[in-house]
Simulated assay, not measured.
Amino acid sequence: MNAAAADSVRTYLVVVDATPESRVALRYAALRARSVSGRVILLHVMPATEFMQWGGVQAAIEAEAAENAQTLLAGIADEVVEWTGSRPGVIIAKGEAIAAVMNTVAADPSIHALVLGAAPKGAPGPLVSYFAGERAGTLPCLVMIVPGGVSDDRLAELT
């Protein structure tokens, strides 16, 4: 696919972790991408480890976190393939989640929407609060917030 064609594909960026609301957002993004012949990019952000006096211990902690991220994303990517018929892009970032999202969106002009999941109960998480509040009008893409309590059947109807 040439650069112009890649830019015209609707890409749905989903920040994934092990939360149920992330899963709902992922399913919505995958079903939506399938219905518009788009694609999905999975973004997982590993928090930066605090500096430790013993570098070997810090390196081991970081290696274990990276392995856990790879395992999580491999399973999720397989599900996206089942839902869409195509393999999603996968990005593992390290550091602060808001900065990772901003950098990812800035680097890829094909990103049509940032898809976030909101917990079915309680206050919204930091990404939903930030991107639906303070930064809502400044992103170069849509922000879609999928309620975490939406059923699979309802998601299928909405996409």
Results as ranks from 00 to 15, higher is better:
112 H>R: 08
111 I>H: 01
39 R>I: 05
127 L>W: 05
103 N>A: 07
141 C>I: 01
56 G>V: 08
135 R>W: 07
79 E>R: 14
120 P>A: 15
66 A>S: 11
77 A>P: 09
37 S>D: 15
75 G>M: 10
47 P>L: 07
134 E>I: 11
146 V>H: 10
59 A>M: 06
115 V>P: 03
86 S>V: 15
86 S>L: 14
125 G>V: 12
85 G>E: 11
148 G>E: 14
81 V>W: 09
71 T>C: 08
60 A>E: 15
42 L>G: 03
64 E>M: 13
51 F>H: 12
63 A>W: 02
42 L>Q: 01
95 G>I: 01
38 G>E: 07
105 V>I: 13
46 M>T: 12
83 W>L: 15
51 F>V: 11
38 G>I: 04
55 G>F: 04
113 A>S: 14
64 E>I: 11
109 P>Y: 01
135 R>N: 06
98 I>S: 02
42 L>R: 02
100 A>R: 01
141 C>Q: 04
121 K>V: 14
36 V>R: 09
57 V>P: 05
130 Y>S: 10
56 G>Y: 08
35 S>G: 09
57 V>S: 08
82 E>P: 02
82 E>F: 03
64 E>Y: 12
87 R>H: 15
49 T>V: 13
101 V>A: 00
137 G>K: 08
75 G>H: 13
112 H>S: 11
44 H>I: 03
121 K>I: 12
81 V>P: 05
65 A>S: 12
145 I>T: 09
45 V>C: 03
117 G>P: 12
36 V>N: 05
58 Q>L: 11
61 I>L: 15
91 I>G: 00
40 V>L: 05
43 L>N: 01
131 F>W: 03
110 S>G: 05
52 M>Y: 13
120 P>R: 14
136 A>E: 12
69 A>E: 09
145 I>F: 08
107 A>Y: 00
87 R>W: 13
117 G>K: 10
138 T>P: 01
92 I>P: 00
62 E>S: 06
67 E>N: 13
107 A>L: 01
37 S>F: 12
110 S>E: 05
91 I>N: 01
53 Q>E: 14
110 S>M: 02
61 I>Q: 10
71 T>E: 14
61 I>T: 08
35 S>K: 11
63 A>M: 06
142 L>G: 07
33 A>C: 06
37 S>I: 04
55 G>C: 02
84 T>N: 09
141 C>A: 04
43 L>K: 02
137 G>F: 06
134 E>P: 11
97 A>G: 01
102 M>G: 00
82 E>S: 09
48 A>E: 12
139 L>E: 06
144 M>D: 07
32 R>I: 03
131 F>Q: 04
